[in-house]
Design a protein around this nucleic acid. Structure first.
Length: 307
DNA sequence: CACTTGACCTGTCCGC
DNA sequence: TGCGGACAGGTCAAGT
C-alpha cells in the first residue's frame, strides 16, 4: 500500500535510474494495468525518453519527450522496479546486488538492504518498459488495482483524479490553517476518514493516518467537528513529521512495498508507534496497543493516549 | 445530503 | 493436508 512516502521514494529512485533512457519496447500483459494500451499506444511510446518524474499525492507522473505523460497509480500492491541490463558475464554474488537468492527464499540472504524481489519478470509483472541499453522497468501488481494511463502532458493538470487532490502535506506552504480550511469542520465524520480523503490532503493512507493521529494524541473516531484549533495544529505537525520520517527511513513495507531497486522500507520497524503493533505496549504510556475498525479500515490506537 | 459499505483482485493466514 | 473464509486497503460506485 504505497502512500506518499513510498511513492516519493520510488520517484527519487526512478529519477536517478530511468530518466533520460530511451524506451525501446513496451509490453502489457494485463489490460486492466494499462487501459487503452494498443500497438498504436506502444508505438507512440517507443523511441521516447522519460524527461522528468513528478509526484502528486500517491500518483507518479512520468513526462515523456513526445508530449505525453504516464500517470501511474500503484494502489495497493503496485511496484515499479528498475533492473539494469543483464551483464554478459555472470557477476559474483558479492558484487552484484541483483544476484538471485532464490535458494533460501529469504530477503536477500537476510541482509536488510538486499533486494526483496528476485527474478523479473514474475507472475505479477503487468507492464514492461525496456530501454535501449537493455535495462528494464517492471510494473508489477499482484492485485491488478494499479494502473498506467497515457495522457497528453497539456491535459495532466485537468485530469479528474489530479483535480480532486488536496494540498501536498510536505510543501512549505501547507500550514495548519490550510488543513483547517480543508477539513469538513461541520461534519461528524471520523477524523480518520477525513485524513484518508485525498481531497482533504493528498497522499495519506492507512498507515500514516494511524501514525499521525497517534502522534497528535487524537482518537481516530473523533468527529471532525469536535477538533479544536490546537488539535488541528498538533495533527498538522504530526502528519508532516510522520511522512518526512518515513521518507528518511525509505518508506513502509507492510506487505509488499519495495522501492525502485526492490528494497524494503524501514519506517515500520524503526519509527512506527502503533501501526501493525497490536498487543504491544504503547511507547508513551505503556498501555496495550489495540486494533479496531474505523472508516472500514483496520485501525491501530493507544486507547489511553488518544482521546 | 452525509456517511457507510461493497466491488475490484489475489495471496496469505487461520481455524476446522 | 486441504478447504473455506476472513483479511489486507486505494478509490469509486452504490447503498443506507
Amino acid at each position: 500500500m504505497p502512500e506518499l512516502p513510498e511513492v516519493e521514494i520510488i520517484r527519487r529512485g526512478l529519477e536517478q535510474l530511468a530518466v533520460g533512457r530511451a524506451i525501446a519496447e513496451v509490453s502489457c500483459s494485463e489490460p486492466r494495468s494499462f487501459p487503452g494500451f494498443s500497438p498504436s499506444v506502444a508505438s507512440t511510446i517507443i523511441g521516447t525518453a522519460i524527461t522528468t518524474i513528478d509526484r502528486r499525492g500517491k500518483l507518479l507522473i512520468a513526462h515523456l519527450d513526445n508530449g505525453y505523460s504516464l500517470l501511474i497509480h500503484l494502489r495497493m500492491t503496485g511496484q515499479l522496479v528498475f533492473r539494469p541490463a543483464k551483464k554478459r558475464l555472470q557477476a559474483t554474488r558479492e558484487q552484484d546486488p541483483f544476484a538471485s537468492n532464490a535458494d533460501d527464499g529469504s530477503f536477500g540472504g537476510g541482509h536488510p538492504n538486499a533486494s526483496l524481489i528476485r527474478d523479473l519478470p514474475d507472475k505479477t509483472t503487468r507492464v514492461i518498459f525496456r530501454f535501449s541499453d537493455d535495462s528494464q522497468l517492471y510494473f508489477n501488481d499482484q492485485r491488478k488495482f494499479g494502473s498506467i494511463r497515457m495522457v497528453p502532458r497539456s491535459e495532466v493538470a485537468d485530469d479528474s483524479f489530479m483535480q480532486r487532490l488536496g494540498p501536498e502535506p510536505l510543501l512549505e506552504d501547507f500550514t495548519w490553517q490550510e488543513l483547517k480550511d480543508r477539513l469538513p469542520l461541520n461534519s461528524r465524520q471520523p477524523v480518520k476518514a477525513a485524513l484518508l480523503d485525498q481531497s482533504v490532503i493528498a497522499g495519506i493512507g492507512n498507515i500514516y493516518a494511524d501514525e499521525s493521529l497517534f502522534g497528535a494524541g487524537i482518537h481516530p473516531l473523533r468527529p471532525v467537528l469536535s477538533l479544536s484549533d490546537n488539535d488541528i495544529e498538533r495533527l498538522h505537525e504530526s502528519i508532516r513529521c510522520c511522512l518526512q520520517q518515513s521518507i528518511d527511513d525509505g518508506g513502509s513495507t507492510a506487505r509488499n512495498y519495495v522501492d525502485s531497486q526492490g528494497m524494503r522500507g524501514e519506517y515500520l520497524d524503526l519509527h512506527a508507534k502503533v501501526f501493525n503493533r497490536t498487543g504491544q505496549t504503547c511507547c508513551r504510556c505503556g498501555h496495550t496497543i489495540e486494533k479496531t475498525r474505523v472508516a472500514g479500515r483496520g485501525t491501530h490506537i493507544c486507547p489511553r493516549c488518544q482521546k
